[in-house]
Design a binder for these strands. Structure first.
Lengths: 117, 117
DNA sequence: CACGTATATACGTTCATGCGTATATACGGT
DNA sequence: ACCGTATATACGCATGAACGTATATACGTG
């Protein structure tokens, strides 16, 4: 199951991650909230755990699964160079609008934006 | 091929996107740079085009493929709520370090960080 | 120590997807 | 019109991943 992208390709797994973002949960809780058979949940959690997306704490028979940030941060890093790209698009649009509105515009309230390497 | 995640699950497709990020390219150029058979490239481009990741311009027999931002922006939006999450982690670490170092620390040189929408 | 609860794993089946090979389509040049 | 180049598509195959069902393991309680 190579990449983090392959892991996230599964809708159920993304749903689980969103659930765990709110708070840590047991397998049974996830099972009920997503209305999925228990083995399905366990198997997806296994995949998520192997990939480092979640970790499990032991509470007697319960396993409390909680989110881990690293893999999603990796995704964020992969995305970073592309973010530049669409910033350029927005810049072009803004320049266009600036030109249309007036030449001495203040450009206030615009969040700073990364542009190049 | 439902989601953008499924599209990105394929390593070759991610490689193509990175190539096109630098500049628009023809099928043949991609073929040579990635050393892949031509049908493979064409088929992946088809998938990427159907999902809106790329668009094709016509130059006689050549097709110039260029990147489109929207799907990657969607990915960015999906990621947004998680970003908050790991900010909290970093914040907690920083508070910890601040406490250890000294109470009146300056906290200079720390890049600003997005926290919430 | 038997039983119920909670979770994990094994096994077989099904279905999608990526690939290779072959072929179709389109265009420019001669 | 013919040929070479550039790209797209069709077809068959193989692999892998998700699922359902069944079963194993672990823990707490009476």
């Amino acid at each position: 199951m190579e990449s983090i992208f392959a892991i996230l390709a599964e809708p159920t797994r993304r749903a689980i991650l969103l659930l765990l973002l709110a708070q840590a949960r047991s397998v049974g809780e996830i099972e009920r909230e997503l209305k999925l058979p228990q083995p399905t949940v366990s198997k997806h959690l296994r995949v998520l755990r192997d990939a480092g997306f979640v970790e499990a704490g032991v509470d007697a028979q319960r396993r409390l699964y909680r989110l881990r940030p690293e893999p999603l941060q990796s995704l964020d890093e992969w995305l970073a160079p592309f973010r530049q790209f669409w910033s350029v698009q927005v810049d072009a649009l803004e320049r266009h609008l600036d030109r249309r509105e007036a030449v001495g515009g203040a450009r206030e309230g615009v969040a700073p934006r990364m542009v190049a390497r």
